[in-house]
């Protein structure tokens, strides 16, 4: 278990961050090169003003018609994404690791709050799962990969929660937590989790077309 821990926090962690950052940059670059090669006109229609107008509306809960139509989903989605980002970045246990390895540290969340936020992420994953299974319009367009990416996202939080509370087999769950976190990082650029990378661009492009050409709102 100890050697595995060393492997997971050593070479595999390096590899995971490398693939995550490198892969994301690669996906971004290939998208931009493809635009340049085949749809150059997109650049000419992009507008900073309308890109941000659109992005701002969509990253504010209830600022768009569709968010208002789905209040529960909106609350869950925003809570989920906020917790998904903040919890791993500001978890004390993670910052301690950064401090030990690199002597860098920053503000951390109180553990009890981080605990709650973890539950929010896991709960939201359960909500998404139920939504996927029970809503016909979601079920109809669901494929196996949708469940897999849901699992990929939930796993680090579930295992982290178990490990933090030292339930069951602590060393095992700690390792599983690290492994699943690394899997998630690696998966982001190469699965539909890549909406993290691409959605600002698709949103910005639609915002630009609606704002500058169509003179209409897109929310």
């Amino acid at each position: 278990m100890h050697e595995l821990y060393g492997l997971l926090t050593g070479p595999l962690a390096w590899a995971a961050f490398f693939v995550f950052i490198g892969g994301s940059l690669y996906r971004l670059a290939t998208m931009l090169i493809l635009v340049h090669k085949k749809e150059k006109f997109i650049f000419t229609y992009m507008s900073w003003k309308y890109s941000f107008r659109s992005i701002f509306h969509w990253i504010i809960p209830f600022a768009t018609t569709n968010w208002k139509k789905h209040p529960v989903l909106t609350i869950v989605t925003f809570a989920f994404h906020i917790c998904l980002f903040l919890t791993p970045l500001f978890l004390l246990a993670h910052i301690v690791l950064w401090d030990e390895a690199w002597h860098i540290s920053w503000w951390s969340l109180p553990d009890s709050l981080a605990d709650m936020m973890t539950l929010v992420v896991v709960g939201a994953c359960v909500f998404y799962l139920i939504r996927r299974i029970s809503l016909p319009e979601v079920q109809y367009v669901t494929s196996a990969s949708d469940y897999v990416i849901l699992l990929i996202v939930a796993a680090p939080f579930v295992t982290g929660f178990i490990a933090y509370h030292q339930w069951l087999n602590y060393p095992l769950f700690l390792n599983l937590h690290i492994l699943s976190g690394e899997i998630m990082l690696v998966a982001i650029p190469f699965t539909r989790l890549s909406h993290m990378i691409f959605s600002p661009f698709t949103r910005a492009y639609m915002g630009s077309e609606f704002g500058a050409v169509r003179h209409a709102k897109d929310w």
Partner: peptide, 10 residues
Amino acid sequence: TYVDTCIHCG
């Protein structure tokens, strides 16, 4: 990008 980004949320 559209096809890769769509999260199948309905």
